[in-house]
Design a protein around this nucleic acid. Sequence first.
DNA 1: TCTGGGGTCCTAGGACCC
DNA 2: TCTGGGGTCCTAGGACCC
Length: 395
Amino acid sequence: MKKNVKIIFHIDLNAFFASCAVIKEPYLKDKAFVVGGSSTFKRGVVSTASYEARKMGIHSAMNINDALRIHPKLIIVPVQFGLYQKYSRLFFNFLKRYSSIIVEGSIDEGYIDMTEQAKTRHPIELAKEIQDGLMKEYQLPCSIGIASTLFLAKMASDMQKPLGITVLRKSDIVSKLFPLPIKEMYGIGKKTYPKLELIGIKTIGDFTKLENKEKILSVMSENAYISYVDHIMGRSSDHIDPKRYAIPKSISNETTLNYNMDEADAILKIIVELFESTHERLVKEELVAKTVGIKLRDSEFITINRSLTFNQYTDDYQTFYDAIDSLFEENYQGQAIRLVGIFLNQVMLKKDLKIDYNLFTYQELTKREMSIYKTLENINKKYPESTTKGIKKTS
DNA sequence: TCTGGGGTCCTAGGACCC
DNA sequence: TCTGGGGTCCTAGGACCC
């Protein structure tokens, strides 16, 4: 039994964007500052608050103006995505010294399987070494959770911040996990937790009680319920699959406008600019996509997504462009728009595509080509100006 | 609390095929 | 001919996370 238990570390960089800001601008150390709010001045929100700012009640997702009202001398540092990517890479390369079984949870957190390493050294000693190393080499503070599954390791790393190391054994679940408020559970967010509290589910322990099952099913699907209970009880995945997150499944780009706009041409121009930088990334990373779509949010905060799926994967600029153009024409009704976006879904590596194509029979391939031709014909019938471009480029 | 930007995963209905 | 069921794909929306 015991020999199959895995040892998973979840490593979470504390206030990552703020830590990066301090590395670049050391005078920020121990100051109350926030990262965020640069591009859309009046509409900006706090992305990350330094711990000093947090003590004053400033937190992420808070409107910048509200944060300034709390603390007028608050320093506002613009978002610098390139800087975060650089330190994120250094962080994951550092982790690779300890284990090759590693997966990126997001830009600032990762899971590593330390089962083998823990056979010769104590897990806490290893965790301490990782924590100290990241601090000494890169000035990046982190919290580490140690458990037998991904979910429990994630919950454990959250228990002590900043700079904590927390072990969560299966035998600790009742004493350490059950008392936590339900809203602290990973996966339960601001929509679901008020519903759960309303029906008397206040803690993670309440959630697992069999007599509460019926009530909980009025709030979420049975699949979701079963999967959450498994997570809590330590029955969820302990398998780290490095391939799983290696290739993005979608890429997107969106922006909140400085002012609401209602001129179709001007809005479309911004959408095309967003598309161009997304397309650049697609080509640079040697990806292809099968679905393209646009996102519009109006002044009432009503958001719509409209997409089109081709019959084959492509990275062709004009194919996407024509689809975006017709999606916009078909769906924009002249309302005042506050946010626009574009997304590419069903993304995969171009080189994997070739392998796929070899598997197609001649008839399948012909059928696919026929239908993409038809899709374009339909677009072009509606918008004759784009006709020749669309068909010529996609052959 | 007048509400950013980049992602993942899930659900549900409809179309279509067998 | 007035009607089943399973499987898969597409579309839209929503919840959640950092």
